[in-house]
Design a binder for these strands. Structure first.
Lengths: 243, 243
DNA sequence: CACTCTATCTCGGCT
DNA sequence: AGCCGAGGTAGAGTG
């Protein structure tokens, strides 16, 4: 039998839809189903979705997505690692996706299947992203003066009891400096994060040693700035990309 | 012309694919394209994705998703509110999606289209989710003793200079209590969040008044527990769903 | 629009 | 498997 890259049936009987679905699951193909369905989910949370015309996507890695005609996020889903299977119940196509740890189950009941397609997609795909926190870190390691003149990075991801400091180093007075990096404008959470690291360093280094905390990000919100001031922490404006 | 719920072409010419795409965009239909494509993105970050066989989904609200055969998240996307359009360039189908604030652009170049389908999906869909933080809050408001005997909620989302406290109330000694709710097991970030609220209340209420902070969640990590101890904050184990 | 916070967050890295 | 933090987080709510 010839393996076509794409197999599709428009307005199939439920029996045909089930055949195509099972063949797609067996052959580890990317599968889409257009149809009128309802969805039940139970797991970390629980949800119920009433009848409607939607797009369901099944992936060979065990992902299932239920998309309506709006929103970037699927209205219901199951993450990679799930087991998919289809059944006919009262003439309706049931698509079930289950996993354990945690126990989760998603059931899609199709009243009507308008189209089912299976596709031999490309596996590995290496998307190259720039403008990340790693780019910001590399920018600083290349030119530490961007933080402040005399700053000398000593370690990245330096461990403390509160977690890893993005960049740990010293200033021109040889004081310890903890630098927390954010690729975009930050709110209070980032300040708290930096503060946890500075506190942890304070109880782990020699007590008399000064520890400075510097938040490096393109900008901060007002509330984050207040929190920086209150904590005696500093802010340096810097973006991942040289502008 | 009859409006079919589903329109599809398998192995179309690029010209036909463009026609179907433009008709789908015009008619605000959910559109899927299977084909071999590459993707360029530039906006908040930037990325490049090499050639591969993928599924592209366009929604009438301006969302576009590029899915490979693995992963729950699209490998590239554009959020709702974008403007889509298609063009033929050197015989290849280009699908472009742009928006402003922030300026972002996504370009999908198809070397080959294996199938294009447009679908009249259902608009509004009211998914009912349970097991959320709101359920946990309601559980406590129904029976405040779940936090501790004598706890009396006074306000939800009570504003402070550091943000809104999930539940603000008093204990049996009439001390102020700030309760932070989490629907699942929490790490250090939730403790810092609670701590910010407790500190803010400390500087906003009468200075001599005791302010307790209680984190309510199913469980906490070791590091979060250490942080709770260090900050003098408390933890009460409770789930959104009565088990 | 910006800010804040939740989420069945997802994802990757590390232990 | 759990913990931790990044993310083009998305999405909701509010000012």
């Amino acid at each position: 039998m010839t393996e076509q890259r794409l197999q599709a049936r428009t307005a199939p009987t439920t029996e045909t839809a089930l055949e195509v679905l099972e063949a797609g699951i067996d052959a580890e193909r990317l599968t889409t189903i257009f149809g009128r369905c309802r969805v039940e989910y139970d797991g970390r949370a629980a949800s119920s979705l009433d009848w409607g015309h939607r797009l369901v996507v099944l992936k060979p890695d065990g992902t299932i997505l239920v998309h309506t005609d709006s929103g970037q996020k699927p209205v219901n889903w199951q993450p990679p690692g799930c087991t998919h299977d289809g059944h006919l119940v009262d003439g309706q196509l049931h698509v079930r996706s289950v996993r354990s740890t945690p126990d989760e189950e998603l059931l899609v009941v199709f009243e009507q299947v308008d189209q089912i397609s299976t596709y031999d997609g490309t596996g590995e795909s290496d998307v190259v992203v720039t403008g990340t926190e790693a780019d910001l870190r590399d920018r600083i390691l290349d030119d530490p003066d961007l933080v402040e003149p005399g700053f000398e990075p000593r370690a990245t991801e330096r461990d403390t009891s509160a977690g890893a400091v993005d960049i740990y180093g010293t200033d021109s007075d040889d004081s310890a400096v903890a630098v927390e990096l954010k690729r975009r404008r930050v709110g209070p959470d980032a300040v708290s994060q930096l503060n946890r690291y500075v506190e942890a360093l304070g109880s782990e280094l020699h007590a008399e040693r000064t520890i400075r905390g510097i938040l490096v990000a393109p900008s901060v919100t007002d509330r984050a700035q207040e929190l920086l001031d209150r904590r005696g922490l500093e802010f340096v404006s810097l973006s991942p990309d040289p502008e």
